[in-house]
Nucleic acid binder design. Sequence first.
DNA 1: TGCGATTGCATCGCGCACGATTTAATCTGG
DNA 2: CCAGATTAAATCGTGCGCGATGCAATCGCA
Lengths: 145, 145
Amino acid sequence: MSDPLPLSRMLCFALYSASHAVQAGYKPLLDAMGLTYPQFLVLTLLWEQDDQPMLRLSAALQLDSNTLTPMLKRMEGAGLLTRRRDAEDERQVRLKLTPTGAALRDRAGDIPACLQAQSGRSLPELERLTVEITALRDRLRAAQT
Amino acid sequence: MSDPLPLSRMLCFALYSASHAVQAGYKPLLDAMGLTYPQFLVLTLLWEQDDQPMLRLSAALQLDSNTLTPMLKRMEGAGLLTRRRDAEDERQVRLKLTPTGAALRDRAGDIPACLQAQSGRSLPELERLTVEITALRDRLRAAQT
DNA sequence: TGCGATTGCATCGCGCACGATTTAATCTGG
DNA sequence: CCAGATTAAATCGTGCGCGATGCAATCGCA
């Protein structure tokens, strides 16, 4: 058998440290808008489609209510979105962007492009890598039943 | 220009969600040893080389003392390692594995292999992906000066 | 129709991450 | 040799992630 894998060659650590590096790269840009990185992800989903139930965000981000509820309350407090119970099903909470939250879209549109510039890689290369990592993630999710 | 990138095609989210998925896959195995994922990373470094100064772990993991100090104290409390000031330079703290911490290496050696099995990918494929992601991470770190 | 099961969210506790600040040890120039 | 600068940890506060639990609304089935 081979020697145990060093940390520097572990896929798990590559993902862990790369994810942190990306968030660090985003940080100055997000700070300028008063957003955290997970909040930016939530807004990205709402920019794609406004007025979504929390359940949908939960599925897309793979985050449960114990994470989302306090986060969405902070975003509501910051005037980015509103939280209201669905009239048809009072169990659900629907999220809607405020004009403030919707307006941030213009300022945030450049952020992924900035990351691309920092990465020193071509767009097709980054797209291929994204597809590979996403496929790996879905494979792992499926294996966790 | 093209439409704004949807979350599902953002590299940042691919890394973010894949990293979480990997940690979720590790969780049952680490729980059985009473470890968290970042604690497992620390032990992995100490298994590679015992008796390291905290500064070295900090550089390898890209985590500062505000994260490492409380974490290492918990690991010390769990009997996994010892923390002692370096006699040559009292500013530094040196970490040494206890027999308990060193012994976990045997039980933890299989963990990366388990991830590989779940991923449904060949070892060379995973290695290539690791190299690519690591290179991207280092590029981003360099760009953050 | 009513009652147990399920669903969607909220709450609590703990352990990271990380910015900002503090403290103590060491280094450096004069 | 000494005072200021630098360095390595520690401390504090905030915001995720996530397991465990609680609760109210809805569903399903006799």
